[in-house]
Amino acid sequence: MDAGLAEAAARRLAEAGYHPRVVAADGEDGWAPEAPYDRVLCTASLQRVPFAWVEQTRPGGLVVTPWKTTLQPHGMVRLRVADDGASASGHFDQPMSRPLRPGAPASRRALGRGRMARHHRLMGVRPGRARPAVGPA
């Protein structure tokens, strides 16, 4: 994000009554000056989780982000940081939802209603790995 975009975002959020810290920096590096965090939430789809996020999340904290690979075009990963802070592990879930359709009854538009994700994968993130380890649950 560039500085001008960050300033505009901060101004618009303030006009709406919100006053978060807005930082123009490389998201892969996280934001170490205010770490550790209870949660790191990302809204961009990733193919690897930056280890800096694990390092900047307190033990027991969560890293949550959309996940995308060549074979899996969409999903969500939720990693819990280990007690020693040296790794994180969790699950990859494929969301069981469908796009909203204009004119469909509200009950048919409910996302994932009454269903759990069918595909779960255990995964972990450790220093020095280009991609998280992925294996069957």
Rank of each mutant, 00 (worst) to 15 (best):
V81D: 02
P59N: 14
V22R: 05
Q72N: 06
F92S: 00
D84K: 12
E34F: 13
P50I: 06
A52M: 10
Q56H: 10
T57M: 04
Q72D: 10
V40E: 02
V63Q: 04
H74C: 09
Y37A: 01
Y18I: 02
V77R: 00
V40I: 11
R48H: 12
P50C: 09
G85Q: 09
E15W: 13
G30K: 01
L71A: 09
L71E: 15
T70R: 12
V49N: 05
H74I: 13
L62W: 13
M96N: 09
A88F: 05
G85E: 07
F51E: 02
Q94R: 14
R80Y: 01
P20M: 02
P73R: 07
A52Y: 08
A86P: 03
A86C: 12
D29E: 14
C42N: 11
R78W: 02
D29N: 11
Q72K: 06
V54H: 00
D38H: 09
P66N: 10
E34M: 08
M76Q: 09
P66T: 09
V81H: 02
H91E: 13
P59H: 09
G75T: 06
A44F: 11
K68P: 06
T69H: 04
D26V: 15
Q56W: 07
K68C: 11
V40Y: 01
A52K: 06
R80W: 03
E28R: 11
T43G: 05
Y18S: 04
D93H: 08
F92H: 05
M96L: 15
M76D: 07
V81L: 08
T57E: 04
P66L: 14
P20H: 03
Q47P: 05
E28H: 12
R21V: 07
P50E: 08
T65R: 01
E28P: 04
L79W: 03
R78K: 14
H91Y: 12
H74N: 08
